[in-house]
């Protein structure tokens, strides 16, 4: 009898473990986030579930000061490719939940990546985006949370969420499905989507991810954490631009039409913006002649566009309605310290 009880208990445990795995939807997108079992609400907290592991990134994209909880579920240990990307297996589900502390008074300056439980009594959930690796490649899927924070529903056409942050009203814009590719398809010719944060150089807690069986240990470069003031100004600024701009501004990206390359591999010179005239900036020039005027952030198109919230002028084009004051300050400081001029 005792033995029988043990077996049943074992079976139950197995069962509960089985149902507690991420549910991979190989072809279509279910109507609610819960159907994936990537995240779960337990005791008033949003927590990873189904074998998902929280990861952090070194150079996060600014999204209106939203906090982000990122998870990866990987059915097998992903090898690290030579270029630093991870060779995930079909069935991998990556999530990113955008949320804000409620009753926020001061300016949010600490994107608290890595928090592995979001207390719903003090935070407001906005949206959760998934990148799912299917046989056909990576699929983007967006879910928008209801105000009661009980359910996130599929929203393919995007949404507008009016918010107030530190007294400033703004419209938080959830992108539509095509717009996901606007960032995640970094090669405009192949238009193949891939993760931007879940890569060797970007993952901050790499050791934890190795131990958790998400990725193999592999020697790849580490992208600088632009918030780390112990690092050099140049490393921080270049990492900020790479993290926030290079998905489009790379030699084969959607913004290669501009001739401006902000990836980490760009050479210092006109291709990286130094003394580079605008091509199709329109109102984005702010009246300035060069993307970067060395030593003169006030006369640089780059700082003007980062500090704008006009849809026709601002950069990045999508994904923010507020100015990232700390990011602008970093780029201003970087440009201010550049020597030389543009011969004018």
């Amino acid at each position: 009898m005792k033995r029988f009880v043990l077996i049943v208990a074992g079976l139950l445990a197995a069962c509960s473990q089985g149902s507690d795995s991420v549910v991979f939807h190989a072809a279509s997108n279910p109507a609610t986030l819960a159907d994936w079992n990537v995240l779960d609400i337990r005791q008033g907290h949003l927590v990873p579930s189904g074998g998902s592991t929280v990861y952090e990134v070194n150079a996060p994209l600014f999204t209106d000061y939203a906090h982000k909880m990122r998870t990866i579920y990987s059915p097998s240990v992903a090898p690290v490719r030579d270029d630093g990307s991870l060779d995930f297996a079909v069935g991998t589900v990556i999530s990113k939940t955008f949320y804000y502390p409620e009753n926020e008074t001061g300016t949010v300056i600490t994107p608290d990546n890595g928090r592995d439980a979001i207390d719903l009594s003090t935070h407001r959930l906005i949206e959760t985006r998934l990148m799912v690796l299917r046989e056909t490649g990576w699929s983007p899927v967006s879910y928008v949370w209801n105000e009661a924070e009980t359910e996130a529903r599929l929203k393919r056409t995007g949404a507008v969420v009016p918010l107030t942050l530190s007294g400033t009203d703004f419209a938080y814009v959830v992108p539509n499905e095509n717009q996901c590719a606007g960032c995640h398809a970094t090669d405009m010719t192949t238009k193949v989507l891939h993760p931007l944060g879940a890569t060797g150089p970007q993952i901050k807690n790499r050791g934890h991810m190795v131990v958790s069986g998400i990725m193999q240990h592999g020697a790849t470069a580490v992208q600088a954490d632009y918030r780390d003031t112990n690092l050099s100004l140049d490393d921080r600024a270049r990492s900020y631009l790479a993290g926030n701009c290079a998905h489009c501004h790379n030699p084969v990206g959607p913004a290669d039409t501009s001739g401006l390359d902000l990836s980490l591999s760009a050479q210092v010179g006109p291709e990286m913006g130094r003394c580079k005239p605008p091509i199709a900036a329109g109102s984005g020039t702010g009246g300035h002649k060069f993307s970067i005027m060395p030593g003169d952030p006030d006369n640089s198109i780059m700082t003007y566009r980062l500090a704008s919230t006009d849809p026709g002028s601002m950069m990045p084009e999508l994904g923010r309605g507020l100015v990232h004051a700390e990011g602008v300050a970093l780029i201003r400081e970087w440009i201010a310290e550049m020597d030389g001029d543009c011969g004018t």
């Binding site: 419209a171 814009v173 095509n178 405009m188 849809p311 084009e317 999508l318």
Partner: peptide, 12 residues
């Protein structure tokens, strides 16, 4: 009344 997007219609 546009609040987001660098163009009215983007075709890729």
């Amino acid at each position: 009344g546009q609040i987001a997007g660098a163009e009215g219609l983007l075709v890729t």
